[in-house]
């Protein structure tokens, strides 16, 4: 069992998209629980990819490719998975801010968060502060990830942060920003809680917030 799960980890770490379905199918044929395939195989494989990204061996395209490898495997697992079996670290609302329709970075963060046990509510691009507030109320999420590429659109971040304050949710909802035009300075300026420079860092930040809850 362990050997097969290690093979899944390796296939993801080595970005072997053509091998992953066969390996996951072997795991299922050996009656390995889907939740173990996710937690011991896929998540661990993505962790290895994340480490290689952080130490400079892998690049953004490799992170994306790892996501594609995982996407190949997930339909097989999802078909046999009882959703209640998976430990969730919390709900994260992800959005590209109003006026901006760039989504590559947001999608990579979403993919990594899902693989790390978060429930991702992706509102898409060009999302108004009102839509984010509605989603917060409807889902009860305590984490918000905002992506912005365009400097012209950063005002939206402040609007969202202010709306969260006005709704009395500032102490319970954490806002993390990322994207080409964002920075520590912008985080301070806009009143967000954290700034994630890369997708891997964003996951680390949400993990930290989740552990504090």
């Amino acid at each position: 069992m362990e050997k097969l799960l290690v093979s899944v980890q390796q296939a993801i770490n080595e970005l072997r998209i053509d091998d992953i379905r066969g390996l996951v199918q072997q795991c299922l044929d050996e009656n390995i629980a889907p939740v173990d395939i996710i937690e011991q195989g896929i998540s661990k494989g993505l962790e290895l990819v994340g480490r290689q990204f952080e130490d400079g061996t892998y690049f953004l395209a490799d992170l994306v490719m790892a996501g594609e490898v995982v996407k190949e495997a997930m339909p097989l697992i999802d078909a046999q998975l009882d959703p209640g079996q998976v430990n969730k670290k919390g709900k994260v609302i992800l959005a590209t801010v109003q006026g901006d329709i760039h989504e590559i970075g947001k999608n990579i963060v979403g993919m990594l968060l899902s693989a790390n046990g978060f429930e991702v509510v992706d509102l898409g691009v060009d999302v108004s502060p009102e839509k984010i507030m509605t989603a917060l109320k409807e889902t009860g999420a305590r984490f918000v990830g905002l992506s912005a590429l365009l400097t012209t659109m950063v005002g939206s971040i402040k609007e969202i942060v202010d709306s969260i304050k006005e709704a009395g949710l500032k102490d319970t909802v954490k806002v993390v920003i990322g994207g080409a035009c964002t920075s520590e300075r912008l985080k301070e300026e806009m009143g967000a809680d954290a700034y994630g420079e890369t997708a891997v860092q964003a996951v680390t930040i949400f993990n930290k917030f989740s552990a504090q809850n």
Partner: peptide, 9 residues
């Protein structure tokens, strides 16, 4: 590249 490094190797 993107903000922390090359997009590809």
């Amino acid at each position: 590249a993107f903000k922390s490094g090359p997009l590809m190797n």
